[in-house]
Nucleic acid binder design. Structure first.
Lengths: 195, 195
DNA sequence: CGTCTATTTGAATGTACTCAAAAGCGGTGG
DNA sequence: CCACCGCTTTTGAGTACATTCAAATAGACG
């Protein structure tokens, strides 16, 4: 289990003493998730926020018409959770499952507050994480308003150059907000133009 | 100047002593913004986060094709800022102007960190604000994927029952992500069905 | 009252979706 | 190792939702 991934992440934003780091880690649970297994189901209470040590998770909702919409991919070094559910204690609308075999560290809901009490500096860490998420999701919303599907795909390729090749393309379609059929046609067009 | 609006807001999340509250307020600058005046222009560095005491602001970007997209309305008791710019120190892509005469309290960029140092509890306050913003904007993104324009409009009316009647409808169109022309036709349809 | 902006209306167009079917591909078991 | 099964991707035709552009009408404000 490579907890250094998490510590390195934390160190980018706050400084903890070795003792604090140890305490910090003690709040987490280690878990392995096999490909296609779920970490969270829609309509249940999100039991923890997860930090991905390796592998890749995906977060998505299924809407009233039965369509999947991927909100987030979480490869190594990413956090993922249904924050609404974690914070409110109510059932959320996010599914989280594993795209490949994945190892995570879980920070259970009920120990979050204890962590903040015991190491107040971590409050800052999570504030910064929240801010960063907010900024990127805000940008994504704006992009959805102002960009065409093709442009959103190009942007996605730029932003996630590593995972774009490993993902089934129906996932990419879902992330950028088009049907798999349309995505396929779109890609064909792009390839045709490129030569 | 009714600073109680801000204090009441803060009190919902953290407890400050009267002395701390006084200190807290001392970090802010009061400002009046006349209707149609700007608080922030795209491509400039966002100098502060703003809390609306009364009136109403709007935050929006203008995309490469010259179209406005409204990200947020900020009536009384709301915060607004280009968080990307505030946090990174880089020029952002948000415009903020006043829909009506508005009074705000500004927390300048450079004193934010001082505030956190002097009253660490405020770190928590802003963490919670960030979390709440994140949740609502995430939901909005999902709604944009799964809902039709009509459904987004109905949702908007439910979510902002008070301001929906006072806003020029082209603003509502911009917020939900359709052209003013289409919005007009859509509204007509809805009224026709309703009788 | 006149001007400027917001809203409505209409016709033509475009982007993306639906549904159906075929083709491709990967994993699994015989 | 190959054949088969299930899932993903492609293709095509028809359709729907929303945009564009242009022009008319209505409202707001000095």
């Amino acid at each position: 289990m490579e907890t250094t991934v998490l510590l390195d992440n934390v160190r980018r934003y706050i400084q903890l003493t070795p003792a604090e780091e140890k305490t910090f880690l003690s709040f987490f649970e280690f878990k392995k998730i096999k490909k296609k297994q779920f970490l969270l189901h829609q309509r249940s209470i999100c039991p923890a926020t997860a930090f991905v040590l390796n592998g890749c998770l995906r977060g998505y909702t299924i809407d009233d018409n039965g369509f999947e919409h991927i909100l987030q991919f979480a490869p190594q070094d990413w956090w993922i959770a249904d924050m609404y559910s974690v914070l409110s204690g109510n059932p959320g609308n996010l599914n989280i499952d594993a795209i490949e075999d994945t190892e995570v560290l879980l920070l259970p809901r009920d120990v979050r507050e204890k962590l903040f009490e015991q190491i107040p500096k971590t409050e800052r860490y999570f504030r910064i994480l929240m801010e960063k998420s907010l900024i990127s999701i805000r940008q994504r919303l704006m992009d959805n308003f102002s960009l065409s599907a093709v442009e959103r795909y190009k942007l996605f390729s730029k932003t996630y150059p590593t995972i774009v090749h490993t993902l089934p393309q129906k996932y990419i379609a879902s992330y950028i907000g088009v049907t798999p059929e349309f995505f396929s046609k779109m890609k064909k067009e792009l390839l045709a133009k490129r030569r």
